[in-house]
Simulated scan of single mutants.
Amino acid sequence: MNIACGIEYDGTDYHGFQRQPAAQGPTVQGVLETAIARIAGERVVVHGAGRTDAGVHASGQVINFHTTAQLAPEVWVRALNATLPPTVVVRWARAVPERFHARFSAISRSYRYTIWNDAVPTALLARFTYHRSQPLAVDLMAEACKFLLGTQDFGAFGRSPEDASHPDEAGPHHCIRTMLAASCFRYGPCIFCDFTANAFLTGMVRRLVGTLLLVGQGRLSLEEFAAIVRRAERSHPGVAVPARGLCLVGVSYPSELGLPEPPLMTPAAAWPSPVGAGAELQAD
């Protein structure tokens, strides 16, 4: 059987999603594979839709694995949640076609970065937000998001895995991605930066947000931000923000697979769904 699951996790204490060759610390993939092996009585390989970095969270990660264990989807949910650590939760499970792959079958992925923009920091949301005390011009950050839409080279904000594996062949074409929606808006003391794309470069969202923060601080004009996007060069003043504010909130698949829609809520129940101010590129 090929089983797909929707996964939620607090990534604070994990060295990313992907299992590491060296024993650097626990990974989300590692604890999932250990839990599934205990239930199924066999070793499995878990594939994830997004290879989130160390400290990055997920409310809408999707995984799949192949197993000979003949368990109903609802049994997988109960058994895994009884076996996994409390920082990793299975939201749903489905039997999917043999050809399904959580990463390669995905149409798009959505990330949210949350900034706690208040003079006083937060204790309850400190693991999931990045505190910035100075006022930020969120309207300008939202306006800058318009320059991110469409298919273009995002090499200014991240690296392609292909560049690392084939350095002699690395080039701009490896950094081409299609940004379907991008927005920044305020909700109380939180500023949400939401991005949906067909795929993301390594570190792309964190450096995007770091550069948008310069716009919100008045240190970069909209024209300068647009020029950074257009030049697609990594040498610019925007730096990556900390991982703790980033969350993979959803992965979309072809409707014929019948998988649940990405969740509308981020890990803290008080946070709103990623809709509101900002720019969106409508599909034809």
Rank of each mutant, 00 (worst) to 15 (best):
P274L: 07
E74Q: 09
A268C: 12
V138I: 10
C193E: 01
G60H: 03
S252F: 02
V45C: 10
N198G: 08
D10E: 11
E98F: 05
P135N: 07
D13Y: 08
E233S: 13
A197T: 10
Y113D: 02
G276D: 08
A126I: 04
L281D: 12
A144L: 11
L281K: 13
T34V: 11
L180E: 11
L246A: 08
L140R: 06
D168W: 14
P242E: 14
R234K: 14
H131F: 05
H15W: 15
Q61V: 05
V44G: 14
A35P: 03
V251M: 06
V31A: 06
G55A: 14
E8A: 12
E280K: 15
Y9S: 02
L222V: 06
H173S: 10
T202E: 11
G6D: 00
G155H: 01
V275K: 14
Q61E: 10
P272S: 13
T52C: 01
W271G: 05
L71W: 10
L125S: 00
S59T: 04
A22Y: 08
S133T: 02
A199M: 07
G276H: 13
Q29H: 07
A69F: 00
F104N: 04
R207G: 03
F65K: 12
D194A: 06
E280Q: 15
V205W: 00
Y113K: 04
R132S: 05
S133M: 05
S160V: 11
R231G: 05
P21G: 07
P26S: 01
I115K: 01
V62E: 09
P73A: 11
P260M: 06
I3Q: 01
R109W: 07
I7P: 01
R112M: 02
W271M: 11
R94V: 09
G158C: 10
R206T: 02
V56D: 15
Q152K: 03
G30R: 14
S108L: 14
I176H: 04
G11E: 10
V251A: 09
L201P: 09
P274F: 02
T34H: 13
I107H: 09
A156F: 01
V120I: 15
P260F: 06
G41N: 05
D168N: 15
P260S: 10
I107Q: 10
T151E: 15
Q20K: 12
I39N: 07
G245K: 14
P85T: 08
R159C: 12
